[in-house]
Design a protein around this nucleic acid. Structure first.
Lengths: 227, 227
DNA sequence: ATCTTGTCGATTGTCGACAATGTCAACCGC
DNA sequence: GCGGTTGACATTGTCGACAATCGACAAGAT
């Protein structure tokens, strides 16, 4: 069973290496490939039924995207982000989220406000530590949607890239618990600042939220990350 | 005559495709490859004496870096950034420069202040429109140094990437003249805010400078870009 | 015992061959 | 002329082959 029109569009636009790239990225973000783990070309090639060239091109692209590190003659490895790098990234992320809030506040539509409120409400039902595996993706989507609503494609891209690189940190944060209700209270403050169409308040609320998340992370190094 | 240790280090760490990547990037940034121009694999391969695989890997990396656009079965092209994209990028850049100023102000050293002042002084000697080809690279370096001084590697990387993508816009801006002395006056204000170790003032000065540069750009679409 | 050296299997780096696709101009019927 | 078709050419997509390199292990020297 094949969706013919979709298949045509796919073959027309997607090269093998681009598909391999997407699949390897998925494996990394899903955690099927651990941080620091070596990615062997032939293994991927055989699993997906493609040649090594396609895999190598995909790995080069993923290296440029920051998800993979390639050492000559040694191989490709899932990139590990150090504590120091994570701190740097959180600083940048704070500024980006602040910008997103300032951009979105004046232009947000009533429908978008409703959507964000609904998302916060949904997260509210998963505050129990046992539900963290549900809360977590909702949280990611909430933040992503705010960026998407700004309509600034470049901002969205940069944020998404940063988010991808932080995947390890975020998933590691999944291991322990704490602070979910505080996090979601901050979410609500963000939405209300946006609903008030107040750029400065929205920017401040988002920056405070990210900074608090970073503090939760470094404070209890072994606790969950909820930013 | 070969510098043996350097040669060993090079062969040890640099793959052919990484060298091709650097060279093609140079060609694009230097304007030897025009915006929108097709980059033919064999042409590059023959010119550099390498196989097509190396060139293809390099192009995939450059695509991920945003400098090249690849259309399946049609080829690789030097990426063209539209007016709308340029506006988006300037918005992001304004936020990044503001962040850099806020980060740098509290930590800047006396030597760094001296360096920045010297750079502004040097630019002051090239305010004549005829000297724009001198002023321009100095301007780029001035801004880059501010980011480098923040010590935030990720911020530096994101800024550099944005700058690379804006190369076309900036060079096109070279075609006409105007506003150099205003631009450098803003530079001086930036340095003095940094010298005062005032994060808010430095951030504001940098944001204002970028915003003014963007306005100079869109205002006189055909004028020089000096941001 | 420790260090050096030689060897081997595994893996990556690079290349050219072949297939698939797009481009474009010559050609045809009208 | 003119729109459409066809076919040759240029270019890219993908693959497998071969060489270079790495890491581990064994053998030998000190």
């Amino acid at each position: 069973m094949i969706d013919t029109p979709a298949a045509i569009a796919l073959v027309r636009t997607a090269s093998l290496s681009s598909l391999v790239e997407a699949e390897v990225m998925r494996l990394i973000l899903a955690g099927d490939l651990d941080s620091g783990e070596q990615i062997k070309e032939v293994k991927i090639a055989e699993r997906l039924g493609v040649g090594r060239s396609s895999v190598r091109e995909a790995l080069r692209a993923l290296e440029a995207a920051g998800l993979v590190r390639i050492e000559k003659n040694r191989g490709a490895f899932v990139r590990v982000v150090s504590e120091a790098e994570a701190r740097e990234m959180y600083v940048v992320r704070e500024a980006l989220e602040g910008l997103a809030g300032a951009l979105l506040a004046p232009r947000i539509s009533d429908e978008e406000i409703t959507e964000l409120r609904a998302r916060v409400d949904e997260m509210e039902t998963y505050l129990d530590p046992a539900d963290f595996h549900r809360y977590f993706p909702l949280n990611l989507t909430f933040h992503r949607r705010i960026f998407e609503m700004t309509g600034n494609g470049r901002l969205i891209e940069i944020y998404q890239r940063l988010t991808n690189e932080l995947h390890t940190i975020r998933r590691n944060g999944l291991l322990r618990g704490g602070g979910l209700s505080v996090s979601n209270t901050e979410h609500r403050a963000i939405v209300e600042a946006l609903a008030a169409r107040d750029p400065a308040a929205a920017s401040a609320a988002l920056k405070a939220h990210v900074a608090a998340g970073a503090r939760r992370r470094t404070g209890h190094r072994e606790e969950r990350v909820v930013a």
